[in-house]
């Protein structure tokens, strides 16, 4: 019987518990998240004369699919959660943008950190973020998530969620009204439109007037 090919990523039964699994995922370098062969092929096509048409069209298509169906994980922490719920509800409906709020992080693309992160909650937040599959984005909603907000000087408050997870869009406000959050989500969609297939993002966010 042929020996099965060595797997790059160990499977669940190789681990004793969830903590070991998470530790491995945090140490994994960025590179092995994609197949090396696949990267070589797409680079080859891209560098072939005229081949960029294929890769950019494919990028545009996949990014359109990604941005039209961003599912946020329901991660309401504090007051901003109420405005986030209002954004998901009847008047400011985000479902028309394709965003279905989903409770399980394993099936979502986006984490909207709405509320103050404190030192007790930060490891939980990181754990939920780690459970989300790639590609994933994070929106920091409200001044508490941006920088600690009005509670910045408190002994138990994390000065901004970007000390815990990488953030793509910052939405200011206390709390940001649903219009602001919708603006932030639309900016996120513009960012996603520039997402490269290999996972490295285009550097500048498009200018908005």
């Amino acid at each position: 019987m042929k020996k099965p090919a060595t797997q790059i990523v160990p499977v669940w039964r190789d681990f004793k518990d969830l903590q070991e699994w998470e530790a491995l995922h945090q140490q994994r370098p960025e590179g092995d998240k994609h197949s090396a062969l696949f990267e070589q092929v797409t680079e080859g096509i891209h560098n072939f004369p005229g081949g960029f048409v294929v890769t950019t069209a494919a990028d545009a298509f996949f990014n359109w699919a990604r941005k039209s169906s961003v599912w946020p994980v329901t991660f309401g922490l504090a007051c901003c959660a109420i405005e986030m719920m209002a954004t998901f509800a009847s008047r400011f409906d985000v479902e028309r943008l394709g965003m279905v709020p989903w409770a399980s992080p394993r099936h979502s693309d986006l984490m909207i950190v709405s509320g103050t992160v404190n030192i007790k909650m930060a490891p939980m937040l990181k754990r939920i973020y780690d459970q989300m599959p790639d590609p994933k984005w994070a929106v920091s909603m409200g001044s508490c998530a941006n920088s600690g907000g009005p509670f910045r000087h408190g002994y138990f408050v994390v000065k901004g969620v970007d000390r815990v997870i990488p953030v793509d869009v910052y939405v200011p406000g206390c709390p940001p009204p649903p219009e602001s959050l919708l603006n932030g989500l639309l900016l996120l969609q513009d960012q996603i439109a520039h997402f490269r297939r290999t996972g490295r993002r285009a550097a500048p966010t498009p200018k908005v007037d």
Binding site: A122, H153, Y155, V158, K159, R163, V164
Partner: peptide, 10 residues
């Protein structure tokens, strides 16, 4: 002190 630091969070 109210703003006691607690690296790396604050």
């Amino acid at each position: 002190a109210v703003d006691t630091p607690h690296p790396p969070y604050r």
